[in-house]
Nucleic acid binder design. Structure first.
Lengths: 359, 359
DNA sequence: GTGAAAGCGCTAACAG
DNA sequence: CTGTTAGCGCTTTCAC
């Protein structure tokens, strides 16, 4: 299975100085560049950071020496001295959930030319893990934090409150933010989906979703959904939950399960597009009339699924935009004039697709 | 679309000290904990790092004070003093390509209890961007680097060579590694797929893939594939390339295009599973006999697609395992006894699925 | 335009 | 078991 072999290292040669003394290769410092260029450390530092006036000739000599030596500045020392760190901590629950790579993409894009650098941490939907990751990241004294969700442990909330830097909670606006927040109302997303479904004349509605106890946003969507149905006196006819495994496959299995248990359902609302797609494929195979006899809808607006036989009804979660806006706030370019405390609620757009019949 | 409002900040209160002097809130230091606990800075430091012997009573006093104050250690200062940084730089081309989140997952998992922390950077398949990201990351003096691919700019290669830390290039073993490498041979993957296809009796074979000029691995697979066909005198009958857009949709479009241009094709080899899945869906809709009249295969072994109507033939790219192994090497727990220069070639497993007929 | 001195917050090394 | 001293490699500040 795996083949391991030693690389041809000429042993020791790199590790032994001219004088024969063993010495571990020390990383280059400003002093090395200073000596190589005959310019003071201070001026070298100025050149390398483009700060203050330096004569062209000096600048050139320094740059040449730095390049020739292969000098890489030590940001640790720089950060300690200047009390400035160009890092932004970004904490998300998962990377395999298709949602987050999009958000991170928006953040990277926006930060690209801001001089700030995102640093990603993953919590696996575990509050304790979030706390630990946050602690680690804060100990590097970043310039800002972007964190998914409004729910944190006591300790994590306290750290965020006391960090003294911009904090942006993202994805969700249904709750009390610590500082700024950028997201959508998942409650309202569920609510509006419910209204659209009822408006289209469906009545026997089932819900299929994740069992993850800490996916607060999915839960809020379900709450909103039920509230939306209740407006016209409709109640959820059945529910089905899952955890783990391939979402597409789970979508199939759950759909089969719920339909065999409650055969008279005329609509299935899935908590994400992937399981919705699995359900759609299942229904098409079984020859079920979609959306005539059975309507379907998911959530997220995942364009990964664009090539399916039918376009699943969904609601765009504004993932990329959320990333951008959050990054703008941290970078101080949101244009709001506010320092902290920004509330940005984005509005997800309902996409009817081909799986909800026209009212 | 977006609603922005100010948060109710009680202005200034936090920013003004008891004495009425405005002062920006300084982050807590060891000294603060030292004073609050009546223990020397050094001993506080020992307690907080679990180093050296400290009496239980002292430890308790320190821990209590640190917790009460909400002290978060400053790793910048710590790193500068100890010349140790618990960060591992991880550089990948993309997060939207489903492959990389899996790799990152493997890395995170393995590093979890090693005291090391991954820091992710994204290059968008741009060599210059890779160089820039690498420079940024090296300037934080990480304990190791994990980077996707064997192809780098001159400058990037030089930086990696001179960094004096473990470097692990991942995904691909077809080339000259700088230090260690963990991956599969994409050339061989293509070659073996070709053999399997020819063995199954297909003869008029088309290739569909990405146009991305810098996806070296996809290119190597194609080379290997053509070499594999050539062993029995077969040549690729047609090729089709794409870039951008939803892969599933592109897979459909490309399949339609190649089949209308070259209708007598009896096999389509896709450079990744997503476009392969699009092609599969297209063929099923058109009523094409798969795998009887037309065989299909992709690459990656993406389990995201597990719920499709048929299982697409593919080859597992060992993504998760690659991440784990690379992380082990950086953490010094690969068990090989080597210091640097490890070559780990994983063997992807061919999964015939339902889209290659039995030979 | 350039340089010298001081110190960022922590830890290594040693002394007791 | 605990404390003292001396930096880590930069940048700030001030002097020239």
């Amino acid at each position: 299975m795996a083949l391991i072999r030693a690389k041809d290292h000429s042993p020791g040669e790199d590790q032994v100085s001219r004088s024969g003394q063993p010495e571990s290769r020390r990383a280059l410092t400003l002093r090395d560049v200073s000596e190589a260029s005959g310019v003071s450390e201070m001026t070298v530092s100025r050149v390398l950071r483009n700060r203050g006036d330096v004569s062209d000739s000096t600048r050139e000599r320094v740059l040449e020496a730095a390049k020739r030596l292969g000098y890489v500045p030590n940001k640790i020392a720089g950060a300690l001295a200047s009390q400035r760190v160009n890092l932004v901590a970004v904490i998300v629950p998962s990377l395999s959930n298709l949602v987050f790579p999009d958000v991170l993409g928006g953040i990277s894009e926006e930060l690209e030319d801001s001089g700030l650098q995102p640093v990603f941490g993953v919590t696996n939907y575990l509050a304790d893990r979030e706390e630990a990751v946050l602690y680690q990241m804060l100990s590097w004294r970043p310039s800002g934090v972007i964190v998914a969700g409004l729910e944190h442990t006591e300790a994590a909330s306290a750290m965020l409150r006391n960090a003294g830097i911009p904090i942006v909670e993202i994805m969700d606006v249904d709750g009390e933010p610590i500082d700024s927040v950028v997201g959508i109302s998942h409650r309202r997303a569920g609510l509006e989906m419910a209204r659209a479904i009822v408006r289209a004349g469906y009545l026997r509605i089932g819900f299929l979703g994740t069992k993850m106890p800490h996916d607060y946003r999915a839960r809020k969507r379900l709450e909103g959904f039920e509230a939306g149905l209740a407006e016209t006196g409709v109640e959820l006819a059945d529910k089905e939950f899952y955890s783990g495994g391939s979402a597409l496959l789970k979508g199939r299995e759950m759909t089969e399960a719920i339909l065999s248990r409650t055969p008279d359902l005329d609509f299935l609302y899935y908590s994400n597009d992937m399981i919705g797609a699995g359900g759609l494929l299942y229904c098409l195979e079984k020859g079920i009339d979609v959306p005539g006899k059975l309507g379907l809808a998911g959530f997220n607006g995942v364009d990964l699924l664009d090539g399916l036989p039918r376009k699943l009804a969904t609601m765009d979660a504004c993932r990329h935009e959320i990333g951008r806006r959050a990054a703008q706030i941290v970078a101080g370019r949101s244009g709001s004039g506010l320092i902290g405390g920004e509330i940005v609620e984005l509005t997800p757009v309902l996409q009817l697709g081909d799986t909800i019949r026209n009212a």
